[in-house]
Amino acid sequence: MTTQEETGIYGLMAEFDTPSSAVAAARQTYDAGYRRINAYSPYPIEELAEAIGFHKNMVPLTVFICGILGAIGGISLQIWTSAIDYPLNVGGRPLISLPSFIPITFECTVLLASFGAFLGMLIMNGLPKPYHPVFNVPTFDRASIDRFFVCVKADDPKFNEDETRAFLTRLGAREVSHVEK
């Protein structure tokens, strides 16, 4: 392991032509006991994420919590400003005019929930990321066009450069590349 860290290897990247072959390879890699696997595709493939053992998606919870915070924030802002900090009779309406406060409460809920969705997604994905080792693979340019990749990372306990390379080749990868750190 130490030697691998010295040589600065991030992992091994196997390249595939079709989504089905990539999913098959990812499943087999996972079944073979590898756990620190990544897969890359030009468009979302649910099966691919499942194949590498991704199940815990925290985005909905984040959005939900942010939405609730927005609702509480919105309604308390209005009640506090209109009834507590500067109580003012406007057209004989009650200080806490609940029906009138609903629209802004709703908008605040949506605003915060949306930020939760967008920023939550970015933060959990670790983006923006100016540098990432996978871009060192010359053919990786095609990950956004028409190729599918499965990458076994070097910090996987089962990782051994030669064995893993042989394993990935056996899975039918058209090419297995060394990923520089």
Binding site: A26, N38, A39, Y40, S41, P42, Y43, P44, I45, E46, L48, A49, I52, F54, N57, M58, V59, G120, M121, M124, N125, L127, P128, K129, P130, Y131, H132, V134, F135, F140, A143, S144
Partner: peptide, 11 residues
């Protein structure tokens, strides 16, 4: 830095 990571796609 988007790289089409399968986990990223899911989120």
């Amino acid at each position: 830095g988007w790289r089409g990571d399968a986990r990223h796609w899911q989120r």
